[in-house]
């Protein structure tokens, strides 16, 4: 996009923020409604003090770890399930019966088994990220053109090598859809998990953006700071998705033309 055009994209958001500010100024002071200028001041303070960046880094670390665990399991299982029918017939009922169980519903178990620190949060993230990745991996493997597999078979390539050298790259575009959906869910559930675990504050706190939001809400009723956290969460998610899209284009330069 050219520099002469970009301001247009900001007309609507800026207008909305101005309206928000004007509306906020008509309210009585004790309403505690967050208004843009206060939010901005709060943001400057939270970033400058390093508290927000630290919290985001901590949450990101958990998302990354949980995501890697889930991705590794989903990739291997998904490839095998999509390629070998008996594997799918055996595992599919188990996976499909867990899929509708919301990650947050597992929180009591996670806290009971793993405590209120990082392991519980990572577990919740991994659980949330697992399903979109495995479902899309299986769909991707099943959608691989049969001719490509047959071409490799008639060159004498063994099945497991075909899985790695043909099925995996051919299914990659679909796998990546799962990765992007999973990343959104993982980020969503880390905040929820930290929010819930954060109530243990006073020594046993979980840390991360979620706990920060909980503390602002429960102990200080600082709505401005909570809005800052919300915006930060959104921006980080946006940045991650852009990163993933860039990775996709870099990994699969052939995919756009091919699909």
């Amino acid at each position: 996009m050219s520099t002469t055009r970009w301001p247009r994209y900001f007309i609507l958001p800026v207008a909305l923020i101005v309206l928000w500010q004007l509306w906020g100024m008509t309210l009585p002071a004790r309403s505690r409604a967050p208004v843009p200028l206060d939010v901005l001041a709060s943001a400057v303070e939270l970033v400058a003090s390093g508290r927000l960046p630290m919290a985001i880094l901590q949450s990101l670390g958990r998302v990354g770890l949980g995501f890697l665990v889930a991705g590794a399991i989903a990739l291997v299982l998904g490839l095998l399930m999509g390629f070998f029918r008996p594997v799918e017939r055996n595992l599919d009922p188990i996976i499909e019966s867990f899929r509708p169980v919301a990650p947050i519903a597992l929180l009591p178990l996670a806290i009971l088994w793993l405590g209120t620190g990082t392991p519980a949060a990572v577990f919740i993230v991994a659980y949330a990220a697992f399903f979109p990745m495995i479902v899309n991996t299986i769909a991707g493997v099943k959608g691989v053109e049969r001719r490509l597999v047959q071409a490799a078979q008639t060159l004498g390539v063994p099945q497991l090598t075909i899985l790695r050298t043909v099925v995996l790259p051919a299914a990659l575009p679909s796998i990546f859809v799962g990765v992007r959906v999973a990343m959104g869910l993982a980020w969503m559930s880390i905040i929820a998990a930290e929010l819930a675990v954060g109530s243990k504050g006073g020594g046993g706190g979980s840390g991360g953006v979620g706990e920060m939001m909980f503390v602002f809400y429960a102990y200080y009723i600082e709505l401005d700071s909570i809005v800052v956290c919300m915006i930060a969460v959104g921006l980080v998610a946006l940045a991650i998705d852009h990163g993933l899209r860039w990775l996709q284009r870099w990994l699969m330069p052939w995919a756009e033309q091919y699909r």
């Binding site: 001719r147 071409a151 090598t161």
Partner: peptide, 25 residues
């Protein structure tokens, strides 16, 4: 086998496609 719809591996170059059988088979 040679296929009507070519069945070339779209993520591999011409050279890598031709090399495929020798490399993995």
């Amino acid at each position: 086998m040679v296929f009507q719809d070519y069945a070339l591996f779209p993520w591999k170059t011409v050279f890598e496609n031709i090399e495929f059988g020798l490399r993995y088979g």
